[in-house]
């Protein structure tokens, strides 16, 4: 979940943990519990019941935070989405499904979904495949791999905000170096962030640049985990170059590739800082207005305070991410090649 990209990477990476959770053992604790119960003396059972209390005491801080800042707001999102709100953002009377009816009959909503889908596809596919290509090229037994690996990992040091601000300078219509280069080669300047045709692509470039570092790190770790004898055996069998990559490395990397695809997808769905900095209000013509950004736009941006509508959008986001997570759980254990 760095993410909020942060490392927005933020919340999203946590999902990596979840994968392992499913096959991780949960029996051990119960086994020890059984052993402890078997003790049976009065002293032990007294101790045991005190330990029961201790367990809840130890869990209390985490449970309290989750209750107040995850479970309560989860319920409250549904409450807010069925209530109107005044100009200060306070919820007013119950309006039932009005916000959802308006949302589903608003062509702007479908445009937002389309933009979100385009943004996600345009960032995830180049981000994952680009990182795969770089990692496989680095496996060609050449010198200086460490320098390349460090270079490709560098963007990982940049938060979404700092990366976006740098690119805002690069994209600057008058003095930015992007247009400076174009002018140098005799091309007309491009309105990277002001032209409705370009704005989404310009944000996509920043998002891909940001995620590339992390993707390279994950895939490199995956390559390092492949036992050397598998690669050697494949080489002895005559697999070299492209064939070695396609038939041996890529299948062995499929768990990482699947993980990255899901995590990047969820990450892109939550991309916020880059849009807020590079394309405030969704950019010219709203061409970069994604679902997450719409939540902010309806609820907060420019003095807006329609928290009811914003909550309806938030619930749509919640369902999309939940479905993706369910797919991750369902597919991961079955379809992906495991050693």
């Amino acid at each position: 979940m760095l993410s909020s990209n942060g490392l927005s990477i933020q919340v999203l990476d946590q999902r990596g943990g979840v994968l392992t959770a499913l096959d991780g053992a949960s029996h051990d604790a119960d086994a020890t519990l059984a052993t402890a119960r078997g003790g049976g003396t009065r002293r032990r059972s007294a101790l045991l019941s005190r330990d029961h209390g201790l367990a809840w005491l130890f869990l209390l801080p985490s449970l309290a935070i989750f209750a107040i800042f995850i479970l309560y707001p989860l319920v409250q999102s549904f409450v807010l989405s069925t209530h109107g709100s005044d100009i200060f953002g306070n919820s007013s009377r119950f309006v039932g499904l009005k916000h959802f009816r308006e949302m589903f009959s608003d062509s702007g909503f479908y445009k937002i979904l389309e933009t979100t889908a385009m943004f996600t596809v345009m960032t995830v596919i180049p981000g994952v495949l680009g990182a795969l290509a770089l990692v496989l090229l680095m496996e060609s037994r050449i010198r200086g791999i460490r320098i390349f690996r460090s270079a490709f990992a560098l963007p990982f040091a940049f938060s979404a905000a700092s990366a976006s601000v740098i690119f805002a300078v690069i994209y600057n219509p008058a003095v930015g170096i992007a247009n400076g280069m174009l002018a140098h080669f005799g091309s007309k300047p491009v309105g990277w962030l002001t032209d409705p045709k370009w704005v989404l692509l310009s944000v996509v470039v920043v998002q891909v640049w940001m995620t590339l570092g992390y993707n390279v790190l994950v895939l490199s770790a995956g390559v390092a985990a492949i036992p050397g004898d598998i690669i050697e055996a494949a080489r002895l069998d005559g697999a070299t170059g492209w064939r070695l990559h396609r038939s041996v490395m890529v299948p062995l990397l499929s768990p990482q590739l699947f993980f990255l695809t899901v995590v990047s997808t969820i990450n892109s769905l939550q991309a916020f800082a880059s849009i807020r900095i590079l394309a405030p209000e969704g950019g010219p013509g709203g061409k970069a207005m994604t679902l997450v950004y719409a939540i902010y736009n309806k609820g907060f941006e420019n003095g807006n305070s329609d928290l009811g509508t914003a909550s309806a959008y938030a619930i749509v986001l919640l369902f999309i991410v939940l479905v993706l997570t369910a797919i991750q759980f369902g597919v991961l254990e079955r379809k992906v090649f495991y050693r």
Partner: peptide
């Protein structure tokens, strides 16, 4: 530590990982 509903509580912890922060940011 011995505890009741261990699996349920642990499941709850894992479930919180699936909630995107942006979706509950308004409340």
């Amino acid at each position: 530590l011995p505890m009741k509903w261990r699996k349920a509580v642990f499941g709850l912890f894992l479930a919180t990982l699936m909630i995107p922060w942006e979706a509950i940011i308004i409340p």
